[in-house]
Write a protein that binds this DNA or RNA. Structure first.
Ligand code: MN
Ligand code: MN
Ligand code: MN
Ligand code: MN
Lengths: 159, 159
DNA sequence: ACCAAATTGTAGACAAGGCTACATTACAAG
DNA sequence: CTTGTAATGTAGCCTTGTCTACAATTTGGT
């Protein structure tokens, strides 16, 4: 029990199969969070624009049945991301709101990057809806730096 | 029945909620294909390097139990992507092989793009494992063009 | 105040993807 | 050729995410 109590070794020295397994595991986790993230972002959107988020609207925007939406919203509540009383619409908790903000930023950054690389807006928007859930903070930062640089390059070329 | 038999109208003129619903739907589809894509790519890998793809190896590389791997492999067979007899390892059909090649290309391109944007390799590799399944052909092309351009830019700067 | 329509909720089914525990088969060492 | 071990397969359970069908509630128009 003396060595490796925590095992903080990073990829390089580990068996390659373990590294790969870890990557796949991360992807599975991201997968399972993705749906919640989309719901929260969407609810936040509805709340911001219309002042309320009704399950029906959520369902229509997501393209699922209202029963499905309600069930997932129940899960949101169970996981402490949303609140709301029966027949009274959905609201976000502090955590939910924070997550929504994070997702909104991600979403926009991913779309902007794709567009900057020449992807048509509509396609960028569609791809981003999936990609956003798999972009780590490090990658997100890289995106944002690239966007800044390419913006300033464009600016300086104008002179 | 005269109008809109096929409804080929593209996003612009459609109700925005429908557009959004369509995007989410695409993402859901991609999600459900993602696992098969990873399996097929991995099997192809094992086949290429070791000559055989045993369920146990697949399981270990993916970080799931062998029972899970076997079940998913059954699904691969059911969907015409893989073959193989009991106790005899897994092989890929023509379609399976083609999909594996497509995924390998995607995977590499996504990793290369991320690295080109300054993401550390290990993180790029991890993120790509999720992103690759949500990158449309149009976006993929944009990635590859960006990589070409940035490569040639680097080359010409050397002169 | 009433009623019809919209919204919300509930029930029950199904497939996918994960797990553990147990059963079977193959293989290699002796 | 026996036998122990590794690999493979099977069974049964759980959760998530989807649906349809039906029930209950709320709400807006008269
Ligand atoms: Mn999304
Ligand atoms: Mn989004
Ligand atoms: Mn992958
Ligand atoms: Mn991959």
């Amino acid at each position: 029990m003396s060595r490796n109590t925590k095992d903080k070794r990073t990829a390089a020295e580990l068996p390659p199969e373990l590294t790969q397994a870890r990557r796949f595991g991360k992807t599975r986790t991201a997968q399972s969070r993705a749906l919640l993230e989309d719901y929260v972002e969407l609810i936040s959107d509805l709340l911001a624009t219309g002042g309320e988020a009704r399950p029906t609207d959520v369902a229509r925007r997501l393209g699922v049945s209202h029963a499905t939406a309600i069930k997932t919203i129940t899960r949101l509540k169970r996981e402490g991301l949303a609140t709301g009383l029966p027949y009274r619409g959905v609201f976000l908790t502090e955590t939910g709101h924070a997550l929504a903000e994070r997702m909104r930023t991600r979403h926009r950054l991913v779309v902007n990057l794709l567009v900057a690389l020449g992807v048509p807006t509509e396609i960028a928007e569609a791809d981003a809806e999936g990609i956003e859930h798999h972009v780590s903070d490090a990658t997100l930062k890289a995106f944002s730096q690239f966007l800044q640089i390419s913006a300033s390059t464009r600016a300086s070329r104008k002179s």
